[in-house]
């Protein structure tokens, strides 16, 4: 199973939109950067028909070093979660695509 990377996505933009290869790669990067900034600010990013990226605050808890068994505090942190839309879930299961959007 191969992997799709930035290069292939940029190539698709180039082929479909008719921007130069350079502009296509730049635009892709800008999209990812804008999304990253929103998430960094704690905002969620909701892409209809695809899914929602959101930031969750996790509290402090006691973890354990699995190797030594020593207890270590895990400090509060913020983590990113992705919730796929019904449309995306249907696509990966080869099912009929729900007409209505998400959630």
């Amino acid at each position: 199973m191969n992997t799709v990377t930035r290069a292939q996505l940029a190539e698709t933009i180039y082929a479909q939109v008719g921007l130069s290869r350079n502009d296509s790669a730049d635009l892709l990067e800008t999209v990812l950067e804008r999304m990253s900034r929103a998430l960094e600010a704690g905002d969620s990013v909701k892409i209809s028909g695809f899914g929602t990226f959101s930031v969750r605050q996790k509290g402090r808890r006691i973890g354990r070093n699995p190797k030594t068994g020593v207890e270590v505090p895990i400090l509060p942190r913020r983590v990113l979660t992705f919730r796929p839309s019904q449309v995306l879930k249907a696509h990966v299961n080869g099912l009929a695509i729900p007409a209505s959007d998400d959630e």
Partner: peptide, 12 residues
């Protein structure tokens, strides 16, 4: 179109 293309390609 660019934004849609990106998410459509990931989906595909």
């Amino acid at each position: 179109l660019i934004v849609s293309t990106i998410f459509d390609e990931i989906t595909a």
